[in-house]
Simulated scan of single mutants.
Amino acid sequence: MLEKYNLKIPHAVYSGENALENIIAILRENQVKKLAIFTDKGIEDAGLLNYPMKIIEQSGAETVVLDDLPPEPTYGQAQKLVDQFKASGADFIMAVGGGSVMDTAKLASVLATNQYSINELLNSPDLAEKCVKTLMIPTTAGTGAEATPNAIVAVPEKELKVGIVNDNMIADYVILDAVMIKNLPRKIAASTGVDALAHAIECFTSNKANPFSDIFALEALDMILNNIIKACDSPEDMEAKNKMQIASFYAGVAITASGTTAVHALSYPLGGKYHIPHGVSNAILLAPVMRFNEPVCREKFAAVYDRCVHNKKECITVEEKSAFIINKLEEIVKHLDIPTSLSVFGVPASDLETLVNAGMQVTRLLNNNMRKVTNEDARALYKEIL
């Protein structure tokens, strides 16, 4: 009997040179009268909002900018911005930013109604219904939030990040324009790029992996493994940056069709309790978790090797290919100067049990891991990175 798969992606995706120019057609197609622009202060200070704003001015649409959003927001902080949106009377949403900005905009798209709040969606995500159409313009090549039905918010009382997942939050439109990431600081390009790398390899090795997700995950892995260092190290290499942006989107599609695993599950407490940036916490855990998974994912890692290594292939056996890929993940994280230990962030060894207890709560993702993660396994993995 054939298994069932499904693939849900944004209605329209635009990429390539001057892709931002599609904003005008999108706004006119939807007869937008007032546009709510979700962003943050960092995006504005970097001058990135200027690019789409110049184009929006040509459309004649009224705009309201909603930018009071900190990095890695709590659900309460996200709700505050959603409430501002509801009071604005805007009839279309555009997000210009990274994962937190896009996730908050997605939440706003299903919260124009007063029937439920973000707090209620944490417990009952099925309540969400699309009320307002959305356009996502990512300013990093990493989160893939422009493609997913997920919104991640911090829940302070649980010292954890929680994902709200509902297909109604998939964006209606996406614009991938490499000009938006051209001047991204190397530190942010690195951590968000490794986040996309984690998405791709986790989805490819997930219990939910299927022919649909594999197409996008493998293509994303090929593009990321062969471009992430160039994109981070060479500010003018727009070809590499464009490929990273597309790969990030592909990895987001893979999440929608499959799902991330123990890397993301165990990283959630690191963001929720210690406010470690999401991409960094995933990078710290990436090689340790994949090494833990290797006995049951060996054939999968070998397939990654076969697809993504384009120069002279020196590995012959499945074991050699698998080891090569895991070592490659580790090399990328080190080359990009991303921390590999929690000690950099002042996480004390005495918090080990707190981490284990919090990480093991993320069963939505742990259930996707091909190798079962026990409390003792989680303890050993956290010990490795303390």
Rank of each mutant, 00 (worst) to 15 (best):
T143G: 01
P185C: 13
I152Q: 04
D177N: 10
I152N: 08
D167L: 07
T140F: 00
N183S: 15
V174Q: 02
A141G: 13
N123I: 04
D167M: 01
I118Y: 06
A171H: 02
D195Q: 12
T192P: 02
M136C: 15
T148C: 03
T139K: 05
E120R: 08
E146F: 03
V174S: 04
A147C: 12
P185S: 15
N150G: 03
E157Q: 12
M180A: 11
I164L: 05
T113L: 08
I175L: 02
I152Y: 02
V153T: 09
P149L: 03
Y173K: 05
V165S: 14
G163R: 01
I181F: 08
Y173W: 05
A128D: 01
I188Y: 10
N150W: 13
I152G: 04
E120L: 02
D167G: 13
Q115T: 15
T140P: 00
G193T: 12
K182H: 10
V153Y: 14
V110M: 02
N123W: 01
M169D: 05
E120A: 03
A128M: 01
N123E: 14
L197F: 04
P125E: 07
K158D: 15
A141F: 10
A178R: 10
A178N: 11
P138M: 10
C131Q: 12
N114W: 05
D126Y: 07
D172C: 08
L121D: 03
I118D: 04
P149K: 09
R186E: 13
N168S: 15
V194W: 07
L122E: 08
L121Y: 04
Y173A: 05
P125H: 03
K130D: 09
N183L: 08
D126Q: 11
M136K: 01
T143H: 00
T139C: 13
K187E: 15
A178S: 15
T139Y: 05
K130G: 12
R186I: 10
P149S: 12
S117A: 11
D177Q: 10
L122Q: 07
P125N: 03
I137A: 04
V110E: 02
V132R: 08
A190P: 01
M180Q: 15
A112Y: 14
K133W: 08
N166C: 06
L111T: 09
V155N: 04
I170Y: 01
E159F: 04
Y173N: 05
E146H: 02
A112D: 14
S124C: 10
L197T: 02
L135R: 04
A190K: 00
D195N: 14
T113W: 04
N119V: 06
N183K: 11
M180C: 10
V162Y: 05
L197N: 03
K133R: 12
T192N: 06
N119M: 03
L176T: 05
T113E: 09
N114A: 14
Y173P: 07
E146I: 03
P138A: 12
D177F: 13
T139W: 04
A151T: 03
V110L: 00
